[in-house]
Structures are given as structure tokens and as C-alpha cells.
């Protein structure tokens, strides 16, 4: 299957990512802060793509998911604490703010069959390939 798009996103676009990953593995930190938030994992098969995104602390209805053609766009926000008088941060490592992430998939998606669910702070989006975009098998006839 056509993977060039995914490989471009994942592996070849950013050579620094590998250094960053090594650095994080060495320091035992979670592999996100400093990277783009929220982090995305992409699973692919011939007919389907599964996108999983870590969105801890976000309500499901505050996430906006859109699929146009072969592009998946996810928007959302995570609020920081509303510090009241007398409250203070001792440590502030968690990410807060608004985000927009877009992923270009290697094929057209059937928007009617897209399924998204949130469980334990992980968003899973199923993106089945559009039937019109499926590879067609061509039988060879003998003349």
C-alpha cells in the first residue's frame, strides 16, 4: 500500500526527533513535552487507519475532529489551573493551551464511517478507507 505520506510524516520529516527520543529515553521522561502536543500514534492496514492520541484531562466534547478528503484535523484545548488567591505552583510540567493537529492519510477516508472514542485519556479515531478509493482487482482474460 501507499505509505509514502505516512513515512514522510513519521520518520523523514524531522531528523531531530530521533535525537529527542534518545534524550528522553536516557532521562526517563515521557516522550512528549517539547514535542508537539498532543502526541499521535498511527496504525495502518490496507483498509483502515487507526489514530491514537494522548489527551489526558480533556473532556470528550471539547475535542473537535474533522475529516476532509484524506486529511484528519483535531482541535482542542486544555485549561491550566485557575489559581485562586493564596495558591501557587510548585511544579508545572503539564502542557496547557490550544492545539490543532492535522494528519494527511495516504487515501481518501469515508467520512460517514469515521468512529472516534475516548477512553482513559486516550482518543482513538478509526478511519476506514473510502470504498471508491479501494484498489480494484483486475482479472486477466485469455483471448
Amino acid at each position: 500500500m501507499l505509505l509514502s505520506e505516512l513515512e514522510r510524516i513519521g520518520r523523514f520529516l524531522d531528523p531531530w526527533r530521533e535525537f529527542e527520543r534518545i534524550n528522553r529515553v536516557r532521562s526517563g521522561m515521557a516522550p512528549l513535552s517539547g514535542c508537539e502536543f498532543p502526541p499521535i500514534n498511527l496504525w495502518v492496514s490496507a483498509e483502515n487507519t487507526v489514530v491514537t492520541i494522548e489527551i489526558p484531562g480533556m473532556e470528550p466534547d471539547s475535542i473537535d475532529i474533522q475529516v476532509v478528503g484524506s486529511t484528519l484535523t483535531i482541535k482542542g484545548a486544555r485549561k491550566a489551573f485557575d489559581l485562586k488567591a493564596g495558591e501557587a505552583y510548585h511544579r508545572r510540567e503539564r502542557w496547557a493551551g490550544q492545539f490543532t493537529r492535522a494528519v494527511e492519510l495516504p487515501y481518501e477516508v469515508d467520512p460517514g464511517k469515521v468512529d472516534a472514542r475516548v477512553s482513559k485519556g486516550v482518543l482513538t479515531v478509526m478511519l476506514p478507507r473510502a470504498a471508491a478509493d479501494m484498489p480494484k482487482k483486475i482479472t486477466v482474460k485469455t483471448v
Partner: peptide
């Protein structure tokens, strides 16, 4: 693998609150 979750620690008058991001945990 074991990851270190990112945390926020907030101190108020009577309590200290720790919030840790642990996606996938219930």
C-alpha cells in the same frame, strides 16, 4: 518501559494537589 508522568503541583491554603498525566490509566 516505565515513563515518568508529567505533574503539576499546586499548593493552596489547606491542601497540596498533585495532578499527573497518565493516559491509559484508570
Amino acid at each position: 518501559r516505565v515513563y515518568t508522568p508529567t505533574v503539576d503541583i499546586v499548593e493552596a491554603k489547606d491542601v497540596i494537589e498533585v495532578h499527573a498525566d497518565m493516559p491509559g490509566v484508570d
